[in-house]
Structures are given as structure tokens and as C-alpha cells.
């Protein structure tokens, strides 16, 4: 059934693609987290302008497909004189996309922390920012981690879409190898296994993190 020889021979190539996928994932997860946190705080701000901007960003991203967003960034922006490398365009698209979803997750976590916590902090002379950083976010984190982890895993899988803008990551590597081997089943299967390994490792990591956070307050 399976051509094991082909699999053994081409596995290192796919591994190289997976390595790039991993790099894209990690950078996009981190940037997506930063974008999400900024957008969440803006959306919770008393400033109408910040709130409006954050709402618009979240709406824009969530109401359009990631693939179209990537195309606009990579193929569309050069028309405005903004020429990004495939890698930069891909990471930007992925992290902006993840940021919008993370924003809602983070905002949900923050507002689920009892309002008395902010009041107690402010009554002790803390500024809003200090209270957020020291009191609210650490508590929100515990609530946020599971759904945020879900977003991370979706992001890892979505990196396959940047293959469409010529980034030679895992999916693109598989496609290219199919071009020369005519073995789509083997190649895509290997890609799938590698994706599964990466997402499972991420899930495991998050689980440990979640447990440690839950234990800390016993």
C-alpha cells in the first residue's frame, strides 16, 4: 500500500518544511498574543476612539477569510507600494488574524474577574495599569489559557495557508515533492502526521501550563 521507501527518503525534506512551519507558528502565536492583548485592552478602555478601533479590527478580521486576508497582504499591498516578503506577509496575516480571536478570548477572561478585584486594587492606590498587570491579568490568565490554547492550535494548522503565498513550509514542501514523486498519499500523510505532532505537543505544553497555574493558588 504505502511506499515506505519514498517515505523514508523524503521525510527529511518534510521535516525541514515542518521546522519552518514551527518557526512561523511560534512567531505568529507570540505576535498574535500581543495583538490580542492590545486589542482586548483597547476594547475595555474608556476611550471611545480606542474602543472603536479595536472593535473595527476584530470585526474586519473575523468577518473575512484568512486566505483572502493573506492574499490582500501579499498580492494587494504591493499595489500601494508596500512590498512584503512572503514570510513577513504570512506571519503578519496569521498574527493579525489570531490577534482578533485572542482579543475576544482575553477580553472575556478579563471581564470574568470579579469587579471587586479592580476596586480593591484601586482603593489601595494602584493605577489602572498596575492593577491590570499585577491583579487582574494573572487571574484572567487562568480562565483564558484553555480557550487561548485552542486558538494557538488552530493557528498552527492555519499556517498551511501561507503555502499559497509561496512560503515553503510543510504543506508547500509536500506539494512540491508530489510534483516530482507523484505520491500524494504518502506526502500528505507525512505532512498530516507532522502537523499532528506539532499540535499535540502544543496541547501538552498548554496542559502543563494550565495545571501549574491552577495549583499555584491552593
Amino acid at each position: 500500500m504505502l511506499d515506505w521507501q519514498i517515505i523514508m527518503h523524503y521525510f527529511p525534506f518534510l521535516l525541514k518544511g515542518a521546522w519552518l512551519t514551527l518557526q512561523i507558528s511560534v512567531i505568529s502565536v507570540l505576535l498574535g498574543l500581543i495583538f490580542g492583548l492590545i486589542a482586548a485592552l483597547c476594547k475595555l478602555s474608556h476611550n471611545k476612539l480606542l474602543r472603536g478601533a479595536a472593535s473595527f479590527y476584530i470585526w474586519l478580521i473575523r468577518s473575512t477569510p484568512l486566505l483572502v486576508q493573506l492574499f490582500i497582504i501579499y498580492f494587494g499591498l504591493p499595489q500601494l507600494g508596500i512590498d512584503l516578503s512572503p514570510m513577513v506577509a504570512g506571519i503578519l496575516g496569521l498574527s493579525l488574524n489570531a490577534g482578533a480571536y485572542n482579543a475576544e478570548t482575553i477580553r472575556g477572561g478579563i471581564i470574568s474577574v470579579h469587579s471587586g478585584q479592580m476596586e480593591a486594587s484601586r482603593s489601595l492606590g494602584m493605577s489602572f495599569g498596575l492593577a491590570m498587570r499585577r491583579i487582574i491579568l494573572p487571574q484572567a490568565l487562568r480562565i483564558i489559557i484553555p480557550p487561548l490554547g485552542n486558538n494557538f492550535i488552530i493557528l498552527i494548522k492555519d499556517t498551511s495557508l501561507v503555502s499559497t503565498i509561496t512560503v515553503i513550509e510543510l504543506t508547500m514542501t509536500a506539494q512540491r515533492l508530489i510534483g516530482s514523486t507523484y505520491k500524494p498519499f504518502e506526502m500528505y500523510l507525512m505532512a498530516a502526521v507532522l502537523y499532528a505532532i506539532m499540535t499535540s505537543a502544543a496541547a501538552l505544553l498548554l496542559q502543563t501550563f494550565e495545571k501549574r497555574f491552577a495549583l499555584e493558588r491552593r
Binding site: 471587586g116 476596586e119 480593591a120 493558588r217
Partner: peptide, 11 residues
Amino acid sequence: MVFQQFNLFPH
């Protein structure tokens, strides 16, 4: 200020 619900920082 001391509150009805204590509002200690649980973490």
C-alpha cells in the same frame, strides 16, 4: 477601604 466581599487577591 474594606469591602463586604473581602476582595483579597486570590492568586
